[in-house]
Design a protein around this nucleic acid. Sequence first.
DNA 1: AGTGTTATGATAGACGGGTTCTTTTGTCTA
DNA 2: TAGACAAAAGAACCCGTCTATCATAACACT
Lengths: 343, 343
Amino acid sequence: MARRPSNDTGTRPVSMADVARAAGVSQQTVSRVANGLPNVNEQTRQRVQAAMQKLGFRPSYAGRSLRDGRYHSVGLCVNDVTKFGNLSMIDGIASAAREHHCAITLVEMSKTEEFSLAEATRRMAALPVDGIIIGMSRMAPDFETFDPLPGIGTVIVTMYAHPRVTTVDSDHYGCSLLLMDHLFELGHEQIRYIGGPSFSVDEQFRRAGWQDALERKHIEPVEPLEGDWSANSGYEAGRYLAEHDRTMTAIYAANDQMANGAIAALRDSGLRVPEDVSVVGVDDSLDDFVAHNELTTVRFDLHQRGREVFEHAVPEAGTAGKTVAIRIPGQLIIRHSTAIPRA
Amino acid sequence: MARRPSNDTGTRPVSMADVARAAGVSQQTVSRVANGLPNVNEQTRQRVQAAMQKLGFRPSYAGRSLRDGRYHSVGLCVNDVTKFGNLSMIDGIASAAREHHCAITLVEMSKTEEFSLAEATRRMAALPVDGIIIGMSRMAPDFETFDPLPGIGTVIVTMYAHPRVTTVDSDHYGCSLLLMDHLFELGHEQIRYIGGPSFSVDEQFRRAGWQDALERKHIEPVEPLEGDWSANSGYEAGRYLAEHDRTMTAIYAANDQMANGAIAALRDSGLRVPEDVSVVGVDDSLDDFVAHNELTTVRFDLHQRGREVFEHAVPEAGTAGKTVAIRIPGQLIIRHSTAIPRA
DNA sequence: AGTGTTATGATAGACGGGTTCTTTTGTCTA
DNA sequence: TAGACAAAAGAACCCGTCTATCATAACACT
């Protein structure tokens, strides 16, 4: 099969040789002009540039990559682009990538099905990437069936550490401790928990933080509720708590959206926030959506996280090579959804 | 400068030649095994596969692309990844791309500065892309200084049509007509407008739709207010309207976030929604953030938009070549923030 | 005239995968 | 045992960019 028009007919991309022919110079001179090297007569340079312009020459990415052995792109593999955590990370990575003159090669795995590190690695291996980043927030990584690609940096976004691969994640455990300490200091002890879906790794760590914080103070954790991260599920849970638990003084919702729903439910049930019940969330994601956002929450510096992730994935960026497990600490944002509990 | 270790030392990626040497066969035999071609002795095949496994061979993206003349990737250039419209589009494109076994090469231009089509095209031209998509929602495209790259599909996300380039956008004008018609049918006439920043093209078209709808019914449009798309700016505008305009019966906010803020402001001012004032928004973006979302709004099928964009950008996908201006129609979602105006 | 500088061309090779053509090897049949 | 034929494997080359030599001019300065 005739793969491509082999010469000057048809739509084959314009090569340096084509430019050279059109300008009546050799291919090396074209190269010199294209790369701004010295020792080219001004007149010749202009003739070559005119030919480039006229023919629409642009250097072949494939040819250049083949020669240079680099792609100037970082691979990013996530299950769902729109998920808050992924989105913020993509944003941070995009900033860091831009600063390093890198592109992002984005692959979205199935939104619904689970995927494995092995599968993600296989997909990324066939793409133009100098390093790869795999987001595994939804499930525990299958380290046992996984081998990092030799020669390129790999970063896995996960709470689980690995001896030979750099892992990064927001500190989903530590954020719970921050919030619980804040509530403890105010004097709360009966702190209920509204979590995300139990299969989520983020959820598991946030819940563990809540539970450990209570147990450390010898308080029995009362049955955690399970939502689906949405405001509606937070509302349902809040409604349930308002009706069934008259001793609780605070609610820790595992993200801001559920916290926002819970606040609405409490108020619909005649309870005041924060006078009767304090509420805290995680993510600091409400600002654009809710006017006068008063939710006490934890913010992760995701721009910083993106930068760290990028720099560990791409060799040139410096930090690569060392295997570390990075936990981006959260920052407590105290607003007015928390107060001293009623007497 | 020694670019890369030229042979078997160091960390140069494993090539077919390396595998061939290790297996004691020629490079072509390795190629046959790698591509599942016939006429390879079973024993030889196994020996080659063992060598591949042992050395960790993976075919070079650069080599293959150079030969095939295709990249199996679509370029996407946006100013801000996190912006709602861009995000949803990325999501739709990602789905379509996955179905076509394509990756996405994502480039984020400066979030703050404006960028031109010419600049975006120049950036994308140096990347591994079979087609490019440029999001220009923030500003009017500079068609006059722009030439599409020859040989690859180009799609610009913009409301402005172009004779030689396919353009796509949500119908930011038509969505206003949908909402205004809905309000007219209920009996509203005094409909105020809270828009986004006036430099935004989306804003300009949504506002034009509001204005034209009113003028078509010979109603004088009363001074539109300008927000910044955030709930807080919607709150400020709503507060202002509640205090200064006692004749209005409805508010059209140019996105859901501002609508949500406006509703909060109206209620804080003692006005009921929808009994006293009806409120509508655009985007249908509140569901995750607000419990019992009751906002009447317009939803764009962004998955569909992503698919259309992708198929026009990538030649193989069929639709490419034809130059069209696609307007994705919005779908009116009637909830309970709109009602018959008070008498 | 001799020396150096600058501009350019010619040629080749490296990079990795894939195609085409050719050669070798092996098996079967007359 | 020669001839026919198929299977297996190798040799050569292409894709486009960049670099590394080397050769060859033209020109200027001493």
